[in-house]
């Protein structure tokens, strides 16, 4: 990554961190309902991979911890926050919520709440790319625990069999809800599991964005060049619980502190400061500007946006009826 890109990405990562922390606060204030799965600690994963890919061009799909992936693909943070507030201006018009952020225009194909559900969907997106002959790739971000679903194995087999242009990113944060990987999974290193399907795979430190970027560069190039799927495992950690109802009783504060010493934002920040590219004061200014942006624009937009109309409750269940009449009534033009 070029220095200018690193500086931009640092600013983005700060936005991602502060956005999520602000969501936490809004949840406590009961402005946000439902389930809320936050991303702090894992920022280098999404950012490093997407810097090596082409956001808005490549198709991205993920699970329910999806706000940051959407924003990184180009979704407007204001619309993502409005979605969390359940507003009509939200990225899914208030119908989706935290776990179902979508921005089809930016080729962010959504967050899905069934663990492992996006695996075959990603392969299907790749199948469509293959049929249409484009140079896009499909990127599927999921956690380690998703690999214990049948869809993981079924999809790895099909993706390898048909050489589909799909990149699987495993953000291994060591916990599936509240059960540690040692207690749920026979093999800790997830990239080893895809060897059975003949899929190229690698493992990488998920906290250091330079390392993630380098590994993702190889992975993206592999997939884009038509060599078939690739599986990249990023070792990372989520600071908060699985969701808001999780008090993290299953792990020690010492373990959390150990990981926080390898914070992805601080690693990049300190590197830029050490090389004289920026000062601590510059960094603090970024934080301040980010907070002001979130408060004055993102939250304000979400707060002031209208609720969906109850009359529109059934809108979007099916395609707009008028457009489907030839097939619904049999009176084809």
């Amino acid at each position: 990554m070029k220095i200018e890109d690193k500086k931009r990405v640092l600013r983005e990562m700060v936005l991602h961190r502060r956005f999520e922390e602000r969501c936490y606060q809004a949840y406590i204030e009961r402005k946000i309902g439902g389930f809320l799965h936050l991303y702090p600690g894992q920022e280098a994963c999404c950012n490093g991979v997407m810097e090596a890919a082409r956001p808005g061009h490549d198709y991205v799909i993920t699970g329910y911890r999806d706000h940051v992936h959407a924003i990184k693909c180009g979704a407007d943070p204001k619309e993502v926050m409005a979605e969390l507030y359940g507003k009509e201006t939200g990225s899914s018009k208030g119908r989706g919520g935290s776990m179902h952020i979508f921005d089809a225009g930016k080729r962010f194909m959504g967050g899905y709440a069934l663990v492992g559900g996006p695996f075959p969907l990603a392969a299907g997106i790749a199948k469509a790319i293959q049929l249409k002959g484009g140079d896009e790739i499909a990127i599927c971000f999921l956690g380690d625990a998703a690999n214990n679903q049948g869809t993981f194995h079924e999809t790895m087999n099909m993706a390898a069999l048909w050489k589909l242009p799909v990149l699987f990113i495993c953000e291994n944060n060591l916990y599936g809800i509240g059960t540690s990987i040692e207690r749920s999974t026979a093999v800790i290193h997830q990239h080893k599991r895809v060897c059975a399907y003949g899929i190229e795979a690698a493992e990488c430190d998920g906290q250091d964005i330079d390392k993630v970027y380098a590994a993702a560069r190889l992975a993206v190039d592999h997939v884009r060049s038509g060599k078939g799927p690739y599986f990249l495992e990023l070792m990372t950690y989520r600071y908060r619980g699985h969701s808001m109802s999780d008090s993290r009783g299953y792990r020690s504060r010492e373990e959390e502190e150990l990981w926080k010493q390898r914070d992805p934002i601080f690693i990049l920040r300190d590197r830029l400061i050490e090389t004289g590219e920026m000062s601590m004061a510059d960094y603090e200014a970024i934080e301040k500007e980010t907070d002001a942006y979130i408060e004055n624009e993102v939250i304000k937009f979400a707060e002031q946006s209208p609720e969906p109309r109850v009359e529109d409750l059934e809108k979007y269940v099916f395609a707009d009826r008028e457009t489907q009449l030839p097939w619904l009534t049999g009176k084809a033009a």
């Binding site: 075959p120 969907l121 990603a122 299907g124 999809t155």
Partner: peptide
């Protein structure tokens, strides 16, 4: 798996 693959392609 293949049903999900079809759904993803249909997107």
């Amino acid at each position: 798996g293949f049903t999900g693959l079809a759904v993803g392609a249909s997107f």
